[in-house]
């Protein structure tokens, strides 16, 4: 079992065995991240592949005082955004003014497996999905997101609210379906 430092050093030297070990150690976590940003598993794997190539290409410049997973996550997110940017350019995000969207009932997530949650996130429209991930999961502010995606702060907020209400609707629908199925059984 290699230490993180050994793996980083091996990858920096281009040692293919170290790169393989590094990939195997982190691919699961990164794949889950990519799945949140992608529309499908295939798309997520494309992001993962591209992201790891970038990681191996620039790992020699990784400063060890930073946390490796944070650094890798940033690379993966940037890769995902780059791949999604074309879609966002073709289908620009606009402000969503639907007051009804915000009046959804709060539903807990404890009853859901994370793969179900990821599938729900994947089903969101492209713009909503990215902003939801950046704001709710990664913790970026709307101002930062607006700068990253070259949109207005208001658009980011409205897209996030739309994502939130869509997810709540999906959770509710899933919950109802589960309840109905439970009653039948």
């Amino acid at each position: 079992m290699h230490s993180e430092k050994e793996l980083i050093d091996g990858c920096a030297k281009g040692d293919r065995a170290a790169q393989r070990a590094f990939y195997e150690r982190y691919c699961g976590r990164m794949m889950a991240l990519c799945n949140r940003y992608a529309k499908s598993t295939q798309e997520a794997e494309d992001i993962l592949q591209e992201g790891f190539i970038k990681i191996f290409g620039s790992i020699a410049s990784f400063r060890k005082e930073a946390k490796l997973t944070t650094w890798m996550t940033r690379i993966m997110i940037n890769t995902a955004l780059n791949m999604q940017r074309q879609k966002l350019y073709l289908l620009p995000m606009v402000d969503v003014n639907d007051a009804n969207l915000y009046e959804q009932e709060e539903i807990g997530l404890s009853d859901f497996h994370f793969t179900e949650l990821i599938r729900m996130v994947q089903s969101l429209p492209d713009g909503c999905r990215i902003i939801f991930n950046l704001f709710a999961i990664e913790g970026y502010g709307h101002k930062e997101i607006a700068d990253m995606l070259n949109i207005s702060e208001g658009t980011s907020k409205s897209q996030y609210n739309r994502a939130k209400s869509l997810l709540q609707a999906k959770l509710k629908a899933e919950q109802k379906y589960e309840n109905v199925r439970g009653q039948k059984l």
Binding site: R29, A32, A44, T115
Partner: peptide, 8 residues
């Protein structure tokens, strides 16, 4: 979703 892992 924290710590979630999915095999590629």
């Amino acid at each position: 979703l924290d710590g979630a892992e999915m095999a590629p």
